[in-house]
């Protein structure tokens, strides 16, 4: 028996919004430590890794490890049926071929349940090595989303250059060129507004704007985003989900042909 309950459906809606543009389907691996999903996008350029810890749920029970392959478009249809303040419970029997989403209104007067067929997905799991990154940038997630949106107008690719002075995002194309420089903030009223840079070595890497823009769909999950970079390895874009876990996106760099 698997059962996981969240007080608010909003968080699950936000998580789905953060992955459904990149993935058509995904396998949710459930164990007593929580729920994990790892999947590459269709073109195998990026990797999504979602971790939701069992202790972050209002209730969590997982008697036997189960892997639930879900069509994310179908899951989105079901989650549309939940109000933001509904409690959501995800339930599945051991070896089941369906999963049930149950939504309860705050006053418990409306209870709905939606059963969805599970899929058998051939999933390739990738081992992600522990890495000490040359540069780790933390910045407001809305600022990062804004920069990705703005620079995507100029080119398909964006250059991210990080030094101890700051981080620079650049794009150039037929229209012209764009540069956005962010310096480390010296003092801020709110922690969420801070830009911080931990640098061992300066790094310059090129990435496809459309993937970065897809990652920023996770912005509603967290006020801050963390970018981890080293030369010639994938960028990690991480959004922490308060008290529940995180979503990490890995993006392969573009290299000189």
């Amino acid at each position: 028996m698997f059962e996981a309950r969240l007080i608010s459906a909003t968080i699950l809606k936000k998580i789905l919004d953060a992955i459904k543009d990149l993935l058509n389907e995904g396998t949710f691996d459930c164990s007593d430590s929580g729920i994990q999903l790892q999947a590459m996008d269709n073109s195998h350029v990026s990797l999504v890794s979602l971790t939701l810890r069992s202790d972050g749920f209002d209730k969590f029970r997982c008697d036997r490890n189960i892997s639930m392959g879900m069509n994310l478009g179908s899951m989105a249809k079901i989650l549309k049926c939940a109000n933001n303040d509904d409690t959501v419970t995800i339930k599945a029997q051991d070896n089941a071929d369906t999963v049930t989403f149950m939504f309860e209104s705050p006053n418990h007067e409306k209870v709905s349940d939606y059963e969805m067929k599970l899929m058998n997905l051939d999933q390739e799991h990738l081992g992600i090595p522990e890495t000490d990154y040359s540069c780790v940038v933390r910045m407001p997630s809305m600022e990062f989303a804004r920069i990705c949106r703005d620079l995507a107008q100029f080119s398909e690719s964006m250059l991210i250059c990080c030094t101890k002075e700051g981080v620079k995002f650049s794009a150039s194309g037929d229209v012209g060129s764009a540069n956005v420089k962010l310096a480390q903030t010296s003092s801020v009223d709110k922690e969420e507004e801070a830009v911080s840079i931990e640098m061992q070595e300066p790094v310059t890497l090129t990435f496809a704007c459309r993937y970065l823009n897809a990652f920023t769909k996770a912005s509603p999950l967290s006020g801050q985003v963390q970018l981890s970079m080293s030369a010639d390895v994938p960028l990690v874009v991480e959004y922490r989900i308060q008290d529940l876990g995180h979503i990490r996106y890995y993006l392969a760099p573009k290299i000189e042909d």
């Binding site: 994938p234 890995y250 573009k254």
Partner: peptide, 14 residues
């Protein structure tokens, strides 16, 4: 020109 690499070329299958 630039070439897009794939994520599988950096992380190995487990």
């Amino acid at each position: 020109s630039e070439k897009q690499t794939t994520i599988g070329s950096y992380f190995s299958k487990v």
